[in-house]
Design a protein around this nucleic acid. Structure first.
Lengths: 231, 231
DNA sequence: CTTAAGCATTAGATTCGTCTAATCCCACTC
DNA sequence: GAGTGGGATTAGACGAATCTAATGCTTAAG
């Protein structure tokens, strides 16, 4: 039996791992989970003993296939819950995260099954993030182009907003940047900010690179931009 | 902040306390929660230190008003969840207990609020047990007459089935003994079993006293039985 | 009034997840 | 190739919740 804590660490590693091919550093995990580095180190030892991560001292860890399966199960729970809370309980897109973060460790397979059924087996959650299937097959989380890669003049439609900071999320929501939004890239400034105009004339939003990296986009039909070619 | 474990103990004391006016014995708590007696003792020490129970060594404990409020909050969560799982997620009446037992500790006030609203602020859960109000006012859980107090010939309607054993519950469900069922008491045998006939002609069911004590009933209109007079 | 049976509690140890303080590696600079 | 800065790990401790084994109350029966 795996503790909720272990599930948290595995999910964290999963999230960090999709950012790059490098092994995940202890300090990143510690930061994300708000614990000290020694705590993360000792948990990595336990996870390695159980064969859930591969560890190279002083380098970092990587999920083993078994570890990834556990992570995918937790991620599936999380994203199904976010979808359910939004669709059925009227939660706001930006405020579901904490609730799902707690409940994801405590729902039964039965609950998962019923929720998935009620939602008609959704493929993505309200943020546009893909929901792992019941079979827990690996998902390509990096698929697609992000807003940092866009160039001026691109006409794009938002696919995913993978940001997880609730304040940032609420701001983007308020500004109208949600999955499905169409926008035009107005300026890609060399100081690390992208300005986009909402296609429905709702104004312009400036987005720093750190956030733009979490916004996945597709070209609108008829685009002449480079975003899609790069994908 | 209270741990989920502490909440579990407080709920257990609450459940046991409603069975009699005596202080609740350590061993009963230990049995109910499936831990050893020393474990229960040491938890009682912690709860007493926090002012959640009043403890008399070698005698037992009683919830303080603060302890009862915490217990009521947990019970409210539990019963709302049971209702929600049954009404909205299609769970069976008899199988909701475990799911609710885990989730009750992890839902937010926001979740509680939304669920209560969606269900239109229900007064009782699917077992007929009363759901504490949002204000967490004490509830009279012993209100009503139970099936052990019935006499032959009584025509009764089932109000609550407070049993918590899932197998027994499933059996009663299968047999048609659910809140709302009308029945006639056929025999009160001196060996500790009550036989009742379902009013809709679905046959007869024999119920041992231990179970009958968990079945709360009201007289049907026109009854000549003694059950209601006793109340 | 004594005593044995039956709970309850104390003693002491374990596991998990966490911390702080101390030490250790590694990579980069000079 | 020596030194140093910074992240990683080891050392040691702690609180929560649990266990087993030993001891201590309480009470009801003689």
């Amino acid at each position: 039996m795996l503790s909720a804590k272990m599930e948290d660490y595995l999910k964290a590693i999963y999230e960090l791992q999709r950012e790059s091919d490098e092994p995940v550093a202890t300090s990143r995990i510690a930061d994300l989970l708000d614990v000290t580095a020694p705590t993360a180190t000792s948990m990595m030892e336990s996870l390695a003993e159980r064969g859930l991560v591969e560890r190279e001292k002083y380098k970092g860890v990587r999920l083993t296939p078994e570890g990834e399966t556990v992570a995918l199960e937790v991620v599936r729970h999380h994203r199904l819950l976010e979808t359910y809370l939004t669709e059925e309980l009227g939660y706001d897109w930006a405020e579901v995260h904490d609730e799902a973060d707690r409940l994801e460790h405590h729902i039964s397979e039965e609950f998962e099954r019923r929720v998935a059924e009620m939602l008609d087996d959704p493929a993505v959650d309200p943020h546009g993030d893909p929901i792992p299937t019941d079979a827990l097959d690996p998902v390509d989380e990096t698929a697609g182009t992000t807003l940092v890669e866009a160039t001026e003049g691109d006409r794009l439609v938002v696919q995913r907003v993978s940001d997880r900071d609730p304040e940032e999320l609420a701001y983007l929501d308020e500004a109208g940047i949600v999955p499905g939004t169409e926008l035009v890239v107005e300026e890609v400034a060399p100081i690390g900010v992208v300005s986009v105009a909402l296609a429905d004339g709702e104004g312009t939003v400036s987005i720093p690179d750190a956030v733009a990296r979490t916004i996945f986009v597709d070209a609108t039909d008829g685009s002449t931009g480079s975003a899609t070619e790069a994908a």
